[in-house]
């Protein structure tokens, strides 16, 4: 698992690589929540994410809730393959703001 954080217009983009599971979901959640508490708008980029388990999805739900409470934006972009299927299976695709790419969100925000 690798994580890169970079700025794109008014957003902090968290790029996830590899697999999010029980071993790393908590630290990813804490990283994102820290950014949210500093009033950053968030884009989580799934483009290079190969797998995310339930603990990863639950952690993102917590981060999304934190964003709502801090009145900041929270988007997930680039979901494909297994992570997209997990979003659909858990019906979290109806919960999160999903978009195709960082540019789609970042250029319109």
């Amino acid at each position: 698992m690798n994580i890169e954080i970079e700025k794109y217009n008014n957003y902090q983009v968290i790029k996830l690589y590899g697999e999010v599971d029980l071993s790393n979901s908590r630290s990813i959640k804490l990283d994102i929540i820290k950014l949210i508490k500093s009033k950053n708008n968030i884009i989580v980029d799934f483009t290079h994410l190969q797998y995310i388990d339930s603990s990863g999805m639950a952690s993102l739900v917590e981060a999304f809730n934190e964003a709502k409470e801090n009145d900041t934006e929270f988007h997930i972009v680039g979901a494909n393959g297994s992570p997209l299927q997990v979003l659909q299976l858990t019906r979290l695709n109806t919960v999160f703001n999903l978009a195709d790419s960082v540019e789609v969100v970042g250029n319109n925000g």
Binding site: L22, S25, R26, K29, S54, S55, M57, A58, S59, V61, E62, L89, T90, R91, L92
Partner: peptide
């Protein structure tokens, strides 16, 4: 088997029941 936060576990349980 895990040391996940209670809120994370709560959400996972509700998610699985939803599924």
């Amino acid at each position: 088997n895990t040391s996940l936060d209670t809120q994370t576990i709560d959400i996972m349980v509700r998610m699985k029941l939803e599924v």
